[in-house]
Simulated assay, not measured.
Amino acid sequence: MKNKNKGSLSEQLNGDLLKQLQDKKSTLKQQEKEREEKERQKKVKEREEREANKSFEELLNESELDWKKFKR
């Protein structure tokens, strides 16, 4: 009878531990998604700030248009 009780207690502990681990896994996955989204938003903001702070010369140099064609 002791073995039977011990086994069920062991199974219950394993079940509780498994549930805790699964909860922790889902929490960590959610935290990772949030971290990745914050990082993505940070990169977008930095890129927008760099674009906004470019000088006319930088924008002109990056342009794909051939300005010589428009020269008279």
Rank of each mutant, 00 (worst) to 15 (best):
M1N: 14
M1E: 15
K2E: 06
N3Y: 11
K4M: 04
K4V: 13
K6E: 12
G7P: 03
S10N: 11
L13E: 12
N14G: 14
G15R: 08
L17M: 11
L18M: 10
Q20S: 14
Q20C: 14
Q20H: 10
Q20N: 13
Q22C: 12
D23I: 06
K25S: 14
K25I: 15
S26R: 00
K29W: 14
Q31F: 01
Q31N: 04
K33H: 11
K33Y: 08
E34C: 00
R35W: 03
E36H: 13
E37C: 02
E39R: 01
Q41I: 05
E46M: 02
E46F: 14
E46R: 02
E46H: 09
E48F: 15
E48T: 07
E48G: 06
E49H: 08
E49L: 01
R50A: 06
E51F: 09
A52R: 09
A52W: 08
N53A: 08
K54C: 08
F56M: 04
F56V: 09
F56L: 04
E58F: 06
L60P: 04
L60K: 01
L60Q: 01
E64A: 01
L65N: 11
L65C: 02
D66M: 03
W67H: 07
W67V: 00
K68I: 05
K69R: 11
K69Q: 13
F70W: 11
